[in-house]
Amino acid sequence: MTQYSIWVLEYAYVTKFHRSGVLYGAHNQGYLKLPYCYTVIKGNGHVAMVDVGYNDKDYGKAIADGLGVKNWHSPRTVLAEIGLRPEDVDTIFISHAHFDHFGNVEDFPRATFYIQEREIAKWVWAMSLPERMRFVLSGIDPGDILRGVELACNRRLVCVDGDCEDVLPGIDLHAAPDTHTWGSMWIAVRNDGRRESQDVWVLAGDLAYQFENLGDSGAGGAPDGMFIPVGLAVGSQMNLIATTEQMVKQVGNETRRVIPIHEERLRDRFPSRITDKGLRITEICLAGGVRSLVA
């Protein structure tokens, strides 16, 4: 029986994002819409999330005005669309520490957060580098790291060292060092609960932005094109390619089961709806006995 329901929830978007930011080397190929999303995994008595978005209160207006992010809504508003409140969330996996993924921990008062220890340790190192090397600090808000200190003292921040199985039943964390960031990770949901699962979903964080990163030209089956790294990495393209291979193998070469959250075309592949706030809710799968929230 399927254990978890999974939804990808859009909380903001950029209407005109340059394609080369998404696909390495895609220069002068125009722009696309880039949704900003987080993922909810519900089942087995848990409400978990992958990433928490950013906090509009502190610098949202600057981001909106300066960077073209539009239509931000709070987790309370967004989660309500699937009948949840931020207080219901007990577990949060932080795929990496960029502001739009780790920037809103304070809105989740009861959750325990999981992040790769390497992600913290290497950002600490990067922040000690000379100003002329600041490229590697792009997208990091020191305030997010600072809020992590309080979480750590309250035993609500777990620093994971490498892969970690069954963090929740059937949910595994996989380290992807030196890829998009120093300590990125991806999350595998073995939805039949079996060790050799036939029903795996991979939540890719920013290790893949779009189907093309996965060598998926649109069919969603085995890769029918070459893997293309994402356009931003502080690690290496090779590590991104190798991680993509791991993710695709984990789902038995069925690329539709690797979920890139910045992919607008998830709507073509999974049931979805647009809320009255103009944000999309995409239903990746439903646990046994759970009714659709997008139909």
């Binding site: 209407t15 930011g21 722009y31 900003y36 005005d65 739009d100 997208g139 990091i140 020191p142």
Partner: peptide, 23 residues
């Protein structure tokens, strides 16, 4: 700014008033 986006891929060489933000 508290979040340095000046040199992110998202910035595309621009400083302010552009479209696209770091992910």
């Amino acid at each position: 700014a508290m979040v340095d986006l000046r040199d992110a891929c998202c910035c595309c060489g621009r400083t302010l008033g552009f479209e696209g933000a770091g992910t």
